[in-house]
């Protein structure tokens, strides 16, 4: 049966139509869902298309950068966002997919059958980003690592918030396959603010993870206490375990003033 297609014209209407998310499939950029739909792996009852909902755009609001959920990844590449986020946006897929793919879709994407997803997650955690979402019980704003580790299935992401002074220094390192989708094998992002480190890893498991052990000890080897790498088509868990401490070391060495 053809799905019922809902096209809200505002953020409020999107939240109302989404409700508690039951039976709703949210289409942001469509870059992940369209192949699933074409192959018949998903059969949505109701599809919520967000392109007309006014959720796209980056604005500065006092000391906070507000990035609408539908903002294309392409707009992060050279947009008014911290360098650490831009550098990982640059590595998402290719120029054309970045025009369609969105930041909201990136943090909501479940792992694929062949690779992990959500490559922007490490940068967002390191930058102390917050997620504003709607759903059952109304709107709420939480740290991106809490959003990622919680039950995302009933949440509609509206906006990402990042403090303008989120990072005095930041460092990045990573490995990925050279391919159109180029999902990460492992991404490490580190930000320093007021002498405190925030360390995060993406691409090695179902969601990006904040690495509190490394933050406390500054010992790259401790990253293996924070994450449990998985096997997939882009790399083995063993390979990820071998390179992760090296990538953390590299990112720490690269900590530079923003």
């Amino acid at each position: 049966m053809a799905p019922q297609v809902l096209i809200p014209q505002s953020a409020d209407e999107a939240a109302t139509l989404y409700g508690d998310g039951e039976g709703i499939t949210v289409f942001a950029g469509g870059t992940i869902l369209m192949p699933e739909l074409a192959s018949g792996r998903i059969r949505p009852e109701r599809a919520l298309l967000l392109h007309a909902s006014g959720l796209s755009g980056i604005r500065s609001d006092g000391g906070v950068i507000r990035i609408g959920a539908m903002t294309p990844v392409a707009a992060l590449v050279d947009g008014p966002v911290p360098w650490l986020l831009s550098i990982y946006a640059t590595h998402v897929a290719d120029y054309e997919v970045r025009q369609s793919a969105t930041i909201g879709g990136n943090i909501c994407a479940p792992p694929g059958r062949e690779s992990q997803r959500g490559d922007l997650g490490a940068a967002l955690i390191a930058l102390g980003a917050r997620v504003r979402s709607a759903g059952k019980g109304g709107e709420r704003t939480e740290a991106v690592e809490d959003f990622l580790s919680g039950d995302r299935s009933g949440r509609l992401v509206l906006e990402i918030e990042i403090d303008v002074d989120a990072a005095r220094k930041s460092g990045a390192s990573g490995k990925r396959r050279k391919h159109a989708h180029s999902y990460a094998i492992a991404n490490v992002a580190i930000a320093e603010r007021d002498g405190e480190l925030r360390v995060a890893v993406a691409g090695v498991g179902p969601t990006a993870v904040r690495c509190r052990s490394v933050e406390a000890s500054r010992d790259p080897q401790d990253v293996l206490e924070d994450v449990d790498p998985v096997d997939d088509a882009v790399a083995t868990a063993e390979y990820r375990r071998q390179i992760l401490p090296l990538l953390v070391r590299e990112a720490l060495d690269r900590l530079e003033t923003e």
Binding site: G30, T31, P35, L49, E96, A180, H181
Partner: peptide, 27 residues
Amino acid sequence: CQQGGCGTCTVLVDGEPRRSCLTPVAA
């Protein structure tokens, strides 16, 4: 490929190149 990975379906949407296989027509 119809998965966004090969690029042969690319068209210009208001002047910007996009993968037409990944774009729902309603969008």
